[in-house]
Design a protein around this nucleic acid. Structure first.
Lengths: 225, 225
DNA sequence: CAAGCCAGTAACTAAACAGTTACTTTGTGG
DNA sequence: CCACAAAGTAACTGTTTAGTTACTGGCTTG
C-alpha cells in the first residue's frame, strides 16, 4: 500500500540521502520520544507519568521507547540530562564583560528569571527530582561534570564591584546565586497555590513584569554597601 | 484469646470510658490513617503514593481508609487541608505588637523559615499540589476561607516602619511575603539537587544557620530606605 | 545480491493497583 | 439483653501498568 511511496521518496537519483520520508529515521524517532517524555514527566512527575502516554504523544510504538532508552527510569534520566544541558548551554552564551558590575548582576538575575519563565518543564523536572532526593541526578556522571557557568560570572562581577567599592566585602557568590534563583523559582513553581490563596493571578503580564523588577531590586539591595 | 482482655480494659466500673484499649477507636484510626497518608503523599507525590502502602503504614485494613475518607483523592485533600491548617494555626500564635518594626519583620522571616525547616512534608505537599496546578486546593472551600494571618501582621509592621521613616514608601506586602517564603522554600525544597550540583551539603547545621541569617538580611535590605 | 542488522509493529503477560464484596466483631440505646 | 449500627477483616475483582515476545519490513555492506 505505502511501499511504493517509500521507495519513491527514499532516494532521489544522486547518491545524496535527501529529506527522507517519515519512515525509518532513528534520530527523529529518538528526539520525538525525548520531547514527548519531557512533557509527560513535567506534567505528571515520575510516579504519574505513563509510558503508554509517552509513546502515544511521540506517535511511536512503545517498543521503540525501550529500544532507544532501556526503561522508564533511564528515559527519565535522559530527559533530566537534556533539561540541564539546555540551561547550561544558555548560560554559556551570556557575555557580561563590558557591563558595569551592577548592570551585570541585574542581567544575570533577569536571565535566570526569564529562563525559568520560558522553560516551565525545567522547573517541574527539578521539583520531581527533589521529591526523589536527587536520586537520578546523583547517578548521572554526565551531569556531575556539567558545572554551572553562572557562578564564575557572578564571582567575577562581585570582584569588580567590590574593587569599585560598590558591593559589600562579605558577599558569598553561592548565596547570591541561590537568592536570584529562589525568587524566580518559587514565584513560578508555586504560582498555582499562591494565585488561589491570594486571589490574584500571578501569571498575568503586569504581575510577571513587576516580579522581574522586584527580583533585580532585591538582589542588588542585598549586596550593596 | 484477647477478648477477655478487651472486656476487662473497656470499662473500669465508674461509667467513665477510661484509656480504652487499642481496639475500636475511630478517632485514633482516622488520625493514624491521616498521619500515614501525609508521609506517603509527601514522599511519593500523588501519582507515586500507594493506597496499600498507606494502609500498611497506618497499621489498618485498607477497607477502613475508604470507610473514613472515600477514596484516594479525598484522602489526599484531607491531608492537604490538615497541612494548611497546621501552618495557619502556628501563624496565629505569633505576637509582634511590642516589637520594633525591623525586629518584627525579622521574626516573621525566621518564623517562616523555621516552619518550613520543621515541616518538610508541608513543602513537599505544596510541590505536589503545584505540579497539579492547585487542582485540589481550588476545590477546597474549607481552605479558601482560611486566610493567611501573616499578611495582616506584615502590613501592620510595614505601616509602623514607614511612619518611623525606616522603610520605603512603595513596599508591597505581598511581594515582601513572597520574598521571605521564596528564600526559605527554594533552599529547602531544592536542597537535594543543589547539594549535588554544588558539592556542598546544604542540610548541615552551619549552612542552615547561615541561610537563616541571609534570609533576614535580604528581607530587611529590600525594604529599608 | 544476499546476509545480517537495525527500525518498527502488534499483541501479549505478569504484576501492581484502586476500589469492592461479603462477612465478623464490638459497643450502645431502647 | 437484644437489636442495630458502626468498626473492622480478609479475600477478591477489573483495570491499568511497565515491560516482552515474536514477528515484519527495509537499509547497508562485503
Amino acid at each position: 500500500m505505502e511501499k511504493a511511496q517509500a521507495g519513491a521518496r527514499g532516494t532521489n537519483g544522486n547518491g545524496e540521502r535527501a529529506e527522507r520520508s517519515a519512515q525509518r529515521d532513528p534520530e527523529r524517532t529518538r528526539a520525538s520520544i525525548l520531547a514527548a517524555a519531557t512533557k509527560e514527566f513535567a506534567e505528571n512527575g515520575m510516579g504519574g507519568a505513563r509510558v503508554d502516554a509517552i509513546a502515544e504523544r511521540a506517535g511511536i510504538n512503545k517498543r521503540m521507547l525501550y529500544h532507544y532508552f532501556g526503561d522508564k527510569e533511564q528515559l527519565y534520566l535522559a530527559v533530566l540530562e537534556e533539561a540541564y544541558i539546555g540551561i547550561r548551554t544558555a548560560e554559556k552564551a551570556i557575555n557580561l564583560s563590558d557591563l558595569e558590575p551592577e548592570q551585570g548582576i541585574a542581567e544575570l538575575a533577569m536571565f535566570t528569571w526569564r529562563y525559568f519563565l520560558e522553560h516551565p518543564e525545567f522547573l517541574s523536572l527539578l521539583g520531581t527530582e527533589n521529591l526523589h532526593r536527587a536520586r537520578w541526578l546523583r547517578q548521572s556522571t554526565r551531569l556531575k561534570e556539567l558545572h554551572s557557568q553562572l557562578m564564575g560570572k557572578l564571582s567575577e562581577l562581585l570582584d569588580r564591584g567590590r574593587a569599585k567599592g560598590l558591593f559589600r566585602e562579605d558577599v558569598d557568590p553561592l548565596h547570591l546565586y541561590l537568592t536570584m534563583a529562589a525568587l524566580g523559582y518559587f514565584y513560578l513553581s508555586n504560582q498555582y497555590t499562591l494565585s488561589t490563596i491570594f486571589g490574584r493571578d500571578l501569571a498575568e503580564r503586569p504581575n510577571l513584569e513587576g516580579w522581574e523588577r522586584h527580583i533585580v531590586h532585591v538582589t542588588l539591595a542585598s549586596i550593596r554597601r
